[in-house]
Nucleic acid binder design. Structure first.
Lengths: 196, 196
DNA sequence: GAAGTATATTGAGACAGTCTCGACTTTTCC
DNA sequence: GGAAAAGTCGAGACTGTCTCAATATACTTC
């Protein structure tokens, strides 16, 4: 269940790498604290770097988010793969969904970013989202096959539910995210499905 | 089921009233089109008025939202009252929830504003939210009493679900808002509730 | 270890948005 | 018709996004 920290993909000059890492660290802190609409200018300032440098490394806010999130998302998908072996399909599904919520709730605004990225093929996060979605699909399909999960449930529904729960948790001082997810997952039970 | 248009509460000078109404009209259009973070400057520009005038009428973005939304919210609460007389408590509940979703989904970002307003007593929308919440509580309580609704469901859960569904609908090109609400409401059925 | 090159950084500047406030203008009402 | 109340104006201080030509730094090769 390890979710790693990001590492630059290509070779870089030493100073560039230093700045890259510092920027990422400051961005992670700001993201966790202020949400996805933190000020890029401030990230640069706090990293002791001109803002042009930030834009050099991360041309868009999204590029910065991908660098922060990509590895975590892929790790989440891997957890989903493992849970396909869970003895109870429904429990595997709910365990994964809660792990996904916990991941998404780490950064405010992440749910929103993920909902957009999954539909936007130009997004740097798009591929990572697809991977997560595929992991969800595996779990949902297994549940449908054993009859525990209602037949009209899709991975897209699950993905939306998880992100919506993360969103609700951000808005509310109470534990609304977990509650929404729990109630929502109960709605996935086949026993609860009414035809028509 | 009529949801009225806003009207200024206090007496105003004729020119002020003209501007007030024009600003609201432009704001409603911009809100529906661009979401809750439309540019206030542009509202003023399109209303043919200096931006100081806008700030004179609506000191904050929230004040503007309250003027736009207050009456609609109170109407929604009234619909909830009526549905207390619905022969099936659960159906009354779902009917109301869908009406609420349809209201909230009219303006992008409204769900977010409503989630915040209900917890923030300084918000201009706070009272209107409380009224809606009370309407939801009536419906949920009736369902719990007849045993159709799971005993741990609260009006706050329902409120969160509706707003989350509106949020999901905004993010997604598909009909994800309605789906989330439908699945979520199915999770409210007592038949689906597992103790422990 | 110096020169040359590829790479990275800088910061000013163009632009858009929020919000304030003192000077000014219009309406109201006696 | 004129004073007071009410409303409007718009420049300006601030924060933020993003670009780009000039400049500086690190790496490579001899």
């Amino acid at each position: 269940m390890d979710i790693g920290t990001p590492v630059p993909r290509r070779r870089m000059r030493a100073d560039a790498r230093r700045n890259y890492e510092r920027l990422l660290a400051e961005a992670a802190a700001a993201f966790a604290e202020h949400g996805a609409d933190f000020s890029l200018e401030e990230i640069a300032r706090r990293s002791g770097v001109a803002n042009g440098t930030l834009y050099g490394h991360f041309p868009t806010r999204r590029a910065l988010l991908e660098a922060l999130m990509g590895d975590r998302m892929r790790a989440l998908a891997a957890i989903g793969q493992e849970l396909l072996a869970h003895p109870s399909p429904f429990e595997g599904l709910t365990t994964w969904a809660h792990a996904a919520l916990s991941h998404t709730a780490t950064y405010r605004g992440l749910g929103t970013a993920l909902m957009q990225a999954v539909e936007d093929e130009t997004s740097e996060l798009h591929m990572a989202c697809k991977t997560v979605l595929a992991a969800g699909e595996g779990l949902v399909a297994r549940g449908r096959a054993t009859g525990e999960v209602r037949p009209d449930a899709t991975a897209a529904d699950l993905y939306a539910l998880i992100n919506a729960a993360a969103w609700a948790g951000e808005q509310s001082s109470k534990n609304q995210g977990e509650r929404l997810l729990t109630f929502g997952l109960d709605g996935y039970r086949a026993s609860n499905f009414r035809h028509g």
